[in-house]
Design a protein around this nucleic acid. Structure first.
Length: 111
DNA sequence: ACATTGACGCCCA
DNA sequence: GTGGGCGCCAATG
């Protein structure tokens, strides 16, 4: 009998699809929460995507910073996490305004 | 089982 | 461009 520690969160097939897709988003491009949800066959689950990203460990190799909202804004507070996200994007050549605005027209990734 | 809570999205004033 | 309101849906209390 295999005993699984309670603190290990269960990983669903959708989680795998999300991680795989996110990992394929190229540097210098962005995607929206709703877009990711839609692309893995889970429409109307944008909030869920945000939930998953929120739970990622700090040392995750996934490009969580390439995910923004459909309004073309960074969803995290620009006083905290949003600042880090903006820096990471700028490091890839993405232009991010001080308020966290990004041009979806220029940077949205569409496979 | 019921109420709240969001890294959301869309519509309208 | 800016809020405000509402629908959505899984997680959390």
């Amino acid at each position: 009998m295999v005993r699984v520690p309670r603190f290990v969160a269960p990983v669903t097939p959708n989680d795998i699809r999300l991680f795989t897709l996110l990992a394929s988003v190229p540097a210098g491009r962005v995607v929206t929460y709703g877009q990711l949800a839609e692309m893995i066959g889970a429409p109307r689950r944008a909030r869920w995507v945000g939930q998953i990203l929120k739970q990622l460990p700090q040392d995750s190799s996934l490009p969580w910073h390439r995910v923004i909202n459909a309004q073309g804004r960074i969803s995290l507070s620009m006083l905290e996490g949003g600042r880090r996200q903006a820096e990471r994007l700028r490091a890839e050549g993405v232009v991010v305004s001080a308020e966290g605005r990004i041009s979806l027209r220029l940077y949205r990734w569409m496979p």
